[in-house]
Amino acid sequence: MQARNNDDPAQIYKADNQWSDQVRRTRQKLAGICSQCMNRAVRVQTLDGHTYEGVVIGSDNSYLHIMTGDARFFGPYASNAILTLVLYELLVITLLI
C-alpha cells in the first residue's frame, strides 16, 4: 500500500462522462432557447418544483436572468428584483402572452 501525499487530496466525486455530456448538450440547447426569449415574459419551473414568473433580461451558457417582482420569493418590498437560475436545473420554460 502506497502512502498518500497530503498535497494530493482524495477525489470524493467525479461525474459520469455520459451524464456530463448530456448536461453540456442540454445547457447549450437551453442557452439558445433563452436567448430567443429576451425581453419576453416567461414562467420557469425548476427541477425542484419551484415556479417563477418574470421577464428575461439576460442569459449565457450557464444562467438565465429574469426580472421579477414576486413578493413570495423576494419579500413584500421587492420591485424589479433579478433572479438568476442555473440552466441545467430548469424543467419548463413557458412564454406568457
Results as ranks from 00 to 15, higher is better:
residue 76 P to D: 07
residue 43 R to W: 04
residue 46 T to K: 03
residue 34 C to F: 05
residue 65 H to V: 10
residue 74 F to H: 12
residue 5 N to Y: 06
residue 82 I to Y: 01
residue 36 Q to G: 14
residue 6 N to D: 01
residue 24 R to I: 13
residue 40 R to I: 08
residue 67 M to V: 09
residue 83 L to E: 12
residue 76 P to K: 09
residue 87 L to A: 10
residue 74 F to K: 08
residue 73 F to Y: 14
residue 30 L to S: 01
residue 85 L to Y: 02
residue 60 D to E: 10
residue 92 V to P: 00
residue 13 Y to H: 11
residue 6 N to I: 00
residue 89 E to W: 04
residue 71 A to F: 00
residue 92 V to F: 13
residue 30 L to N: 04
residue 88 Y to D: 15
residue 78 A to G: 12
residue 5 N to S: 15
residue 89 E to K: 13
residue 54 G to M: 08
residue 61 N to Y: 07
residue 37 C to R: 06
residue 87 L to W: 09
residue 23 V to S: 04
residue 45 Q to R: 14
residue 28 Q to E: 15
residue 63 Y to H: 12
residue 33 I to M: 03
residue 20 S to F: 01
residue 52 Y to D: 03
residue 7 D to R: 05
residue 6 N to F: 01
residue 73 F to I: 12
residue 7 D to Y: 07
residue 60 D to C: 10
residue 19 W to A: 13
residue 54 G to Y: 08
residue 52 Y to C: 04
residue 51 T to C: 14
residue 32 G to V: 06
residue 53 E to S: 13
residue 95 L to W: 05
residue 74 F to N: 09
residue 58 G to C: 04
residue 80 N to D: 15
residue 59 S to G: 02
residue 36 Q to L: 13
residue 21 D to S: 07
residue 91 L to N: 15
residue 69 G to R: 03
residue 66 I to W: 05
residue 93 I to L: 07
residue 21 D to K: 06
residue 92 V to S: 07
residue 61 N to V: 04
residue 97 I to K: 06
residue 84 T to N: 09
residue 4 R to H: 08
residue 54 G to A: 07
residue 18 Q to H: 12
residue 12 I to Y: 13
residue 29 K to V: 01
residue 68 T to E: 11
residue 74 F to L: 08
residue 16 D to K: 08
residue 48 D to E: 11
residue 72 R to S: 12
residue 50 H to K: 15
residue 11 Q to K: 11
residue 15 A to C: 11
residue 97 I to P: 04
residue 5 N to F: 07
residue 88 Y to V: 02
residue 30 L to R: 06
residue 47 L to A: 02
residue 65 H to A: 10
residue 55 V to F: 00
residue 47 L to T: 05
residue 12 I to K: 13
residue 16 D to I: 05
residue 38 M to F: 14
residue 1 M to V: 02
residue 41 A to H: 13
residue 57 I to M: 06
residue 53 E to T: 11
residue 81 A to D: 15
residue 49 G to L: 09
residue 15 A to W: 08
residue 59 S to M: 05
residue 51 T to M: 12
residue 26 T to H: 13
residue 79 S to R: 12
residue 36 Q to T: 15
residue 44 V to T: 03
residue 28 Q to K: 13
residue 70 D to V: 03
residue 74 F to T: 07
residue 75 G to L: 03
residue 63 Y to S: 09
residue 66 I to G: 06
residue 67 M to W: 00
residue 96 L to W: 04
residue 31 A to H: 13
residue 77 Y to I: 00
residue 28 Q to W: 08
residue 10 A to R: 05
residue 82 I to C: 09
residue 49 G to P: 07
residue 39 N to I: 00
residue 69 G to P: 00
residue 22 Q to M: 06
residue 64 L to Q: 03
residue 61 N to G: 15
residue 85 L to Q: 02
residue 55 V to E: 13
residue 10 A to N: 06
residue 21 D to Y: 02
residue 84 T to V: 15
residue 59 S to H: 03
residue 39 N to Q: 14
